[in-house]
């Protein structure tokens, strides 16, 4: 039980009066890869944004229920602190255009004015880039702007930026949707390596990708959690008819 790093309990999310997430209950184990599947518009992004308290940035947004990170209610803490412990990578790569690669990786510290010794920050940059499998390609260009990298490399730079904060959880919101197949498969490999040191939650509407990368899968449908279980079980013997229909491509 203590293995559950994230617990979502009776959770609701709204935009204005529209209920986007309806009574979600989920428990995620530490250092696993979990994928969230579902047709577009079903609330996957909203769920991720609730987990690192980005949902509330929208004007009319609010939530009900609990999300516990290591048994602490994230909605009872400063949102900034939660966001530093739960990293997020977005659909489109968004490195900071005004910063070089080095500063992009260390941005979480710089922007939060967390003072680091030069040797410490060098180490964090190198480790994060190695973890994101980008070190070899950029080690000689650390002081060039990140915007000249290819799309896949930019996305890995964003992953390195999130990893540099040494988060407990890494959220990837369709992080491969804008990439070519080669870059996609590289990122998928990366997820496999990373899940030994960090819990990863991947949103995707690519069913095959969910099967390839995740240990557990949650299936969302119009704001409700339909099914959650080991990826193998859910794919071979879905319990709900809607899950089965989605997996066999009947809708979505």
């Amino acid at each position: 039980m203590e293995n559950d790093i994230l617990k979502i309990e009776n959770f609701y999310a709204y935009y204005d009066t529209i209920c986007i997430l309806n009574n979600i209950n989920l428990k995620f184990k530490k250092n696993r890869a979990i994928s969230i599947l579902g047709p577009s518009g079903c609330g996957k992004t909203t769920l991720l944004r609730c987990i690192n308290r980005m949902h509330e940035l929208a004007d009319e947004a609010f939530v009900k229920g609990k999300i516990l990170l290591s048994d602490k209610d994230i909605y009872a803490t400063e949102p900034m602190l939660i966001r530093r412990r739960i990293g997020m990578v977005f659909q489109n790569p968004n490195p900071f255009p005004t910063m070089n690669i080095y500063n992009n990786v260390i941005a979480g510290y710089k922007l939060n004015s967390i003072k680091l010794k030069r040797s410490e920050s060098d180490k964090i940059v190198e480790e994060s880039l190695i973890k994101a499998d980008l070190w070899e390609q950029v080690r000689d260009n650390l002081y060039k702007r990140g915007t000249f990298l290819s799309g896949g490399q930019q996305q890995r730079l964003c992953i390195a930026r999130a990893l540099a904060m040494k988060p407990d959880i890494l959220l990837l919101d369709e992080a491969t949707a804008s990439l070519d197949p080669k870059a996609t498969s590289n990122i998928e490999k990366l997820i496999h390596q990373l899940k030994h040191s960090v819990t990863i939650i991947v949103v995707t509407h690519n069913i095959a990708q969910a099967a390839r990368v995740s240990d557990y899968t949650a299936f969302l449908y119009s704001g409700e959690l339909i099914e959650f279980g080991k990826t193998g079980d859910l794919f071979t013997t879905p319990k709900d008819k809607r899950t089965e229909e989605y997996l066999t491509g009947k809708f979505g």
Binding site: N52, M54, L81, R83, R85, N94, P95, G108, L111, A162
Partner: peptide, 9 residues
């Protein structure tokens, strides 16, 4: 979003 997601105020 990228900056806020890093916990930047």
């Amino acid at each position: 979003e990228a900056s806020l997601a890093l916990g930047t105020p």
